[in-house]
Amino acid sequence: MLRIEGLKSGYGKSEVLHGVSMSINAGQVVTIIGANGAGKSTLVNTLSKLLPIMSGRIEFDGRDITALSASDVVDLGIIQVPEGRKLFGPLTVDENLTLGSYRVRHAPKAELTDRRKFVLDLFPRLAERATQRAATLSGGEQQMVALGRALMAGPRLLLLDELTLGLAPIVIDEMFETLERLKREGLTMLLVEQRADAALALADHAYVMATGDVVAEGPAPDLRNDERVRKAYLGESDITSD
């Protein structure tokens, strides 16, 4: 579904990604793990076209999308849940969800209603909070809005950037249960996650990034048992708690 070849990108003149290649098949959940500064978020933002591509190529469904704009990429169904949630704080939960469905705004009304029902079924608490301003919600609830907003767009590929950052452990567990459910529904996802243990447990395939390069890749269970990966990215306590 998605193929990245020799992707170089960064901020201004400074290159952060030094030629990253990876691919995601339809229905697959792929995770990228790596330390802070490895370039994981840079990669996600480059895929969303928020950062300029210096060289390399991105293909989606066999089509070259390297030169497309950020909103074009959304039109294709590549939807990002940004790090730090980035809600429209002064707007209500309902309005945030409506903005999420902007990509499919011309779809039949019934389809939009179904989609909203699906999201509210996934996160019943959002129905209670519908008319509240997003900024007044708790961190966990805000993350539900962020994920719900992305799902409203009817994503074909969902990019999740540090979904659980700064959330309480119990909320993190809930989030991963939700992702598990979305995986069962067949949603293709690229998961950038600091909780490497949980991410590897969920994912089919994984890439390990360090300082702007892919340094290892393989089926997620293999990487989970890999000695070096365990040492570098999975603390002992994380493994036993799993």
């Binding site: 950020a70 959304v74 039109d75 940004p82 429209f88 707007l91 903005l99 907003r149």
Partner: peptide, 20 residues
């Protein structure tokens, strides 16, 4: 109108919704 308000709040995030 909602998209206008969204752009005012954060144009980059509005772009992530597919808004030009």
């Amino acid at each position: 109108g909602l998209t206008i308000r969204a752009v005012g709040i954060d144009p980059a995030v509005a772009t992530l919704m597919g808004i030009r």
